[in-house]
Amino acid sequence: MSTANPTTRAEQVDLELQTLRECNASLHAAAGDPAAARSWRVLNPGGRHSIAAGIDAQLEVEIEGHVGYYCAGMNQHAAVRVRGNCGVGVAENIMSGSVVVEGNASQSAAATGRGGLVVVRGDAAARCAISLKGADVVVRGSIGHMGAFMAQRGRLVVCGDAGDALGDSLYEARLYVRGSVAGLGADCVEKELRDEHVIELRALLERAGIVDVDATSFRRYGSERRLYAFDVDDAIASASTPR
């Protein structure tokens, strides 16, 4: 299956020699095996989907190249780094740990993430942090349209620009954008950036390893909470005529 690398002592999986199933089975087996290697390298990912999905252990996983859909999906505890670009849904439904993308990410990055940290060093496409449920997402570049659509909890930090319909139908997630916002979605409004938010931003940027961006240069966006309840009139109650 996998071979030990004597220089880094990392376990290596070469996807030109091994199947995706073998790769993920090895990473999953490490969860229940205290003797298993904690450090892994995945070579020649070749754009394959679902690489390192479903890990449930404190592993360090370095993926040396571009990956397809759902890389590190539903990650628990592991620190995954992709030295390349990601397809759709990187770190979807991440629970904990971290996923760092050194290149760009396609749409739905960190979709429905419930905990942990997702960092995209490049740009992220549409629907970044869609339906976010508690995870933190930091994008060094810009994001596409419908970012944080219906996002419920967690934080999205965008150091570049945001596309149209940012935060549409937003719940309690907090959004920070440094550059321009092409347009806000329904019920998303700009809010004051107070000291506690700057402190929060500094911590997020630090965790993401971003040192060249000033936390005070962001603008904050959140829900106006107008869509939280149906708008029901009661024309009869307010009129003088009997029901």
Binding site: L20, R21, N24, H49, S50, A53, G54, G68, Y69, Y70, G73, M74, V88
Partner: peptide
């Protein structure tokens, strides 16, 4: 691809 991901997980 989504089905494959769930199977992998």
């Amino acid at each position: 691809i989504k089905i494959e991901e769930l199977r992998e997980i």
